[in-house]
Design a protein around this nucleic acid. Sequence first.
DNA 1: TGAATTTTTAACTGGTCGGTTATAATCTAC
DNA 2: GTAGATTATAACCGACCAGTTAAAAATTCA
Lengths: 212, 212
Amino acid sequence: MKESNKLPCKLGRPRTFDEEQALDRAMEVFWEKGYEGSSLPELTTAMGMNRPSLYAVFGNKETLFRKALERYQSTRMNYCDVALEQPTARAVVEALLRGAVDAQTRPDSPHGCLNVNGALACSDEAKPVRDELIARREHSETRLRDRLRRAREEGDLPADACPEQLARYVATVRQGLAVQAAAGVERAQLHTVIDIVIQSWPVGKLVQSASQ
Amino acid sequence: MKESNKLPCKLGRPRTFDEEQALDRAMEVFWEKGYEGSSLPELTTAMGMNRPSLYAVFGNKETLFRKALERYQSTRMNYCDVALEQPTARAVVEALLRGAVDAQTRPDSPHGCLNVNGALACSDEAKPVRDELIARREHSETRLRDRLRRAREEGDLPADACPEQLARYVATVRQGLAVQAAAGVERAQLHTVIDIVIQSWPVGKLVQSASQ
DNA sequence: TGAATTTTTAACTGGTCGGTTATAATCTAC
DNA sequence: GTAGATTATAACCGACCAGTTAAAAATTCA
């Protein structure tokens, strides 16, 4: 059984590519064109490697995509951990949204979020990867929900606040921002959207009575 | 010049399909699988017609998609006109968002919004289609912005409110809801997201001071 | 009946898809 | 220098893609 040893052996002809850099390039192609919109010739060209090497190192297109997702998580979504450690729920939400917008509008990367761009609607063949993306977005929402539950316990949110609902709300805004970023909306404009969310945080009876 | 006469002539072999119904089926396929994820065999099967007829009646895949977009606008986005005629900005926004969620979570239709699902990230070949969708979403946002401007003139919104920013915010939430709906989130849960938006509307200095 | 018109059917076109195979090139270890 | 290991190159595979063509079938009108 010939298992793909990822470590480039010292024996044999040397590789002409760096595995991590190649994965970054693949991530960017998927990010910009989606899973189905990315062809193998595009991927191999961007990655600076030939097709048999791609299959030897990364398996196939789907496993390459999943590894690109992992890479995206560890290099572009690292603001999430920082955000969830903020002292207040309000600061958590703001850091999460502003971090998302900044990551989604970097001039040196495709715009939008790979976890949304990768596959939103797709053919039956691509549905496993779409479901993977859905699961990742849900996981992110779950982490926020748990953090908001803690905030309520700490008195940082009103006792009648609903962490599930608030997390769903923030996740919705975040995904909406991703759609806008993918469409080319400027970073500054997206931050003004976050201003509105933050101005009215936390949403509860206090705000409701004041705004009426 | 043989222009495609859409009207089925009384002469010749009769059609086995209804043009409007066929377009509805095509719309649903594009809605569920996106422009690139929809193949011609899938489309012709769903539409109950053969390929030469499809080309004779609808042009090609891209023009079929654009006609499906028109059909979507006139049959599934008709809540927009009603929403924009609501008496207050708050009622406009609520009708717009609730109408969107209801249209995006109908049990007899694909979930999500065709204007987002159709093409978010795609290959170079499909970019004209993607740009058409972006333009349609922008147009929708522009209509809301104009309505909010009117609301400010009418004193329905604070004088220091920013219609552009508010419209962008609502559009962002709306597109976020579309992503969530496409992922299979329940209608009721999405309505609770709207509850939050509406509770804190209008967002302004009043709310800001109250929430702090 | 038969000519004209339109649609259906089925096969075909060149091109691209993801994935594989065989061989040539390039390295280390001995 | 040579054997063994690994990668690069290029051609190939069957399947499917969007789009077209040619002929058969079904209708109306004369």
